[in-house]
Design a protein around this nucleic acid. Sequence first.
DNA 1: GTACAAAGGCGAAACGTTTCGCTTAAAAAT
DNA 2: ATTTTTAAGCGAAACGTTTCGCCTTTGTAC
Lengths: 333, 333
Amino acid sequence: MPTTIRDISKETGLSLATISKYLNGGNVLPENREKIAMAVEKLHYEVNEIARSLVTKKTRTIGVVVYSVECAFNGSFIHYVNNILSEKGYGLLICDSSNDEKKEAANIKFLLNKKVDGMIVTPVSNNTEFLKPAKTAEVPVVLVDRALKSSEFDCVKIDNRTTAMDAVNLLIKNNHQKIAIICSAKEYTGIERYKGYRDAMSQAGLSVPASYQKKGIHAMEYGYESMKQLLKLKDRPTAVFMTNYELTLGAVMAVNESSEVNCPEHISMLGFDDLILAHVIQPRMYMVVQPVKEMGEKAVEQVLRRIAGNDDVSCEINMNAHLKRGNSIKMLA
Amino acid sequence: MPTTIRDISKETGLSLATISKYLNGGNVLPENREKIAMAVEKLHYEVNEIARSLVTKKTRTIGVVVYSVECAFNGSFIHYVNNILSEKGYGLLICDSSNDEKKEAANIKFLLNKKVDGMIVTPVSNNTEFLKPAKTAEVPVVLVDRALKSSEFDCVKIDNRTTAMDAVNLLIKNNHQKIAIICSAKEYTGIERYKGYRDAMSQAGLSVPASYQKKGIHAMEYGYESMKQLLKLKDRPTAVFMTNYELTLGAVMAVNESSEVNCPEHISMLGFDDLILAHVIQPRMYMVVQPVKEMGEKAVEQVLRRIAGNDDVSCEINMNAHLKRGNSIKMLA
DNA sequence: GTACAAAGGCGAAACGTTTCGCTTAAAAAT
DNA sequence: ATTTTTAAGCGAAACGTTTCGCCTTTGTAC
């Protein structure tokens, strides 16, 4: 049997209330303070967080649910969130939705049952219905990445549309006109980035044939297949914009496999998210880089603020992405 | 206030004990069963896992502590472990040791405080002192990957030495004689793989100059720097064996950056762990592949067995790695 | 020296479950 | 018809904390 606060009480002759006060930093006579410390030492006492949680209704645990841990953005994101949170003595309960809305809803319920103090979520889709139980349980939620502006939840994200416009404009400035896009069309982020592409193109007076618009799912395989198809077109694009990390990887694979087409000689590429992989591939990719670390920091900050009871209005934190230079884009004449 | 078992009791006129029995699948009259179900529905009752844990002393949560979430092996491993565990209704509390033994020890204590039912650990070093608290708390631990054979804990791993020997022998069979190694020398896995290399070389009657043995840390940067140095040698090796994923990536980077040296033309490479990155790099790498998924399955299986109270003798599960063909190795004349 | 405030301590109740031992009613066996 | 077994239900205690309201002691100001 592990020692309890009661054993400490017996050992010191002090009451439970006093021991508890000591443990929580209350006022205790130096003399008694000493006594308790010795007893704790002697009996190897450790507070039982479960019992504590039962009465305080705080678990010092944050739930993190991501659309897929396999997507590198989430892996990286979890890494940073974990770092900050563990420093503050918080635990991290991680759930993977595997891009499945049903699973996502189940994850929320699961975490609610586990009584997490708050949640950080990168959602599967832009349907936030699944968050209702958290709302009614009054557990704060911060949405990240695929976060909806219109939602009633806090969120931290980049301005996907503008960011994508800037990216495409870079290609246009390099005199590209036949610009294709490979994006995911199932969730907010992908859709917004697509809109940015569309707007940039029309602003520049450039039209885009349907065959240049690959709108699919967020997966390396889709990036690979799409790029293969683009390369086969009679009227091949001179540049391709990939709107997330996995799509970028797939596209690079496809180009690498081709013996005829070379990057940037025959095709220019602009990718998304400068995660570890990007350092190893040739040529060095031109990339849109999201500030993953900072996004993690902001998300943690915000969820902790809510937990502390700070009831300011629902807030939307916008971060800036930036372009990282590479040599995957060719300046056309 | 969320509804409790007491509310259900009031609503149905049945005792707490009966409600509890119902919740845990005991014998309850169909009639009462119905009544309770209706009350649960009506009052939106959800069991409070915290209170339950306090009395059952089970949290249905497994702690996973990895030497670094940034290392891809761990990311992949966590993914699989999470999948299985969530299916069984278990939560996953994840801790990152950042390759720091102090942090690792703190993580164990943290998880013990959180009262996890068991732990799965990929340790920082081969010093298992830090696991003592888990031992005394009688919380089962399964070591993975960098697991010590000699330890008093369950473990699942590959036979690192033999696997490395096989790998090096492949190079030898391709008539390579000047074979270098880039490995980490701080932990069990790296040391064992190095030994396999050394043994294979001496069995073949090949000697290895010190300059061919890069023994450092488990980091992409180290792989990069080491390969750079190897390429600069007057008597350059014809083949290099990298003993983990991050080292492999770094080495590939270095070769890719070189304008003179080409793989496999001028240098052959044999890497470790076929994680996502490996699909994107050129040339397609010859790889030693660990069965990450199966290792996760076995680890979960074993920790759950222990939790169930199965006190068979300490067990060591050995898995087989295999070689994945690529075109990064040149057959010498 | 009186009044008052502040500090330190205490007992008991509460948090929301499970479980133990007991009782009763119904069913089965004799 | 009587006994035995089984099923179903109940009350109360337990899990290990925190917290509330109250009491005592000590110190301080006038």
